[in-house]
Design a protein around this nucleic acid. Sequence first.
DNA 1: CAGTGTGAAGTTGTTCACAGCA
DNA 2: TGCTGTGAACAACTTCACACTG
Lengths: 218, 218
Amino acid sequence: MNAISTDRIVQPVPEPTVRRMPSYLNLLREMLRREEQFVSAPAIAKLLHLDPTQVVKDLSYTGISGKPRVGYMVSELVLALEDFLGYNRTHEAFLVGAGYLGSALIQYQGFRESGLKIVAAFDIDKRKVGSEIAGVPVFHLEKFRDLASRLHISIGILTTPAPAAQSVADLMVGWGIKAIWNFAPVPLIVPEHVIVQDTHIYANLAVILNKLKQAKAV
Amino acid sequence: MNAISTDRIVQPVPEPTVRRMPSYLNLLREMLRREEQFVSAPAIAKLLHLDPTQVVKDLSYTGISGKPRVGYMVSELVLALEDFLGYNRTHEAFLVGAGYLGSALIQYQGFRESGLKIVAAFDIDKRKVGSEIAGVPVFHLEKFRDLASRLHISIGILTTPAPAAQSVADLMVGWGIKAIWNFAPVPLIVPEHVIVQDTHIYANLAVILNKLKQAKAV
DNA sequence: CAGTGTGAAGTTGTTCACAGCA
DNA sequence: TGCTGTGAACAACTTCACACTG
């Protein structure tokens, strides 16, 4: 390995592009399984219901270039996307709130091939503490402190009920977590350097109901 | 009821605005509980980490107007938002795929006060069929046909593994469902008149990992 | 004068148009 | 001719600037 950094300058990528990347990877992995060699942007666009130019622009962020008339090499794209998304590094995470949603996330098969590894779950419910969910141990929230300082975990997944969310976020911040994936419908207050990604199920529901209303009105 | 429609013309609302609406409602319901009478847009903006003008513009879509120097009447806004989001009508839904994620959605307390009522779940796993999840009966997928034709359900929630997603979507379409809330990481092919709302957990994960990468690069 | 309300400016993301290539 | 790749036009959303109000 050369002493000069091999990391290219990480240029900012539009968030919508980042959000589409997993879909590309998903599709391309499937194509790789079917041993398809090349794929064109218009073909991808059709399958994912996107604009062809959009796909070209998005894929350009991976650094891979395609051949006119032929398209992109599937295997090359898969590797580039995995690298781009960080799916070949392993990101370890703690999950707090081992209820139904938390359990669902732990169970989620896909995370294993997505660079996310939930290494421990935490709860305050004594019936859950001491058990395992899909091989992931559930500790009492008190233990969070000790473990987080020993291992160094960068991602905290917050799946508690709303009232507990802020205090759990404080805990996570206190123990040096870099990013919080927040599923509670509460805006978290955290120091500036901590990344918060909100995933609010209600926003999606709102969009559906709104589109239904719109459709009915026409 | 008058023959002349009382529905106002449903003007299209920017999707980002729609997505923020549940957060406003959430906050305002909390304020209502605390018996706060008035709230200003800047105050809301601060609590939700938004731009004050944004809040003003968003709230204007509810049809409610505020008083200069004072702000908006909380109770009025809550009612208007509930109406806007359709939370006072009840939308009945079928859920297909009673795994961990499906169970989590069924359990989700919040839906009850969000106008969404999951009336039945379906699966093909014999261990699940016949059971109940939080009072919601789980039927065999075969039964879907009969029930969907009898009741008329507008929303289908799709929480099956990816390979089953398209065939379940076909089923849902066949029985007249208007909107599909899709949690499978698969682009569904449906007739034009059917609304599909994708909720892909990986998109959110991708954003987090990307921000972490970005943070590290700085 | 602190807040609403709105038209204008700015920013971001998408779509178009077309040059280059095999 | 069908595809990549990119700069330019366009559309959508956000932020700014400011007139208005109690």
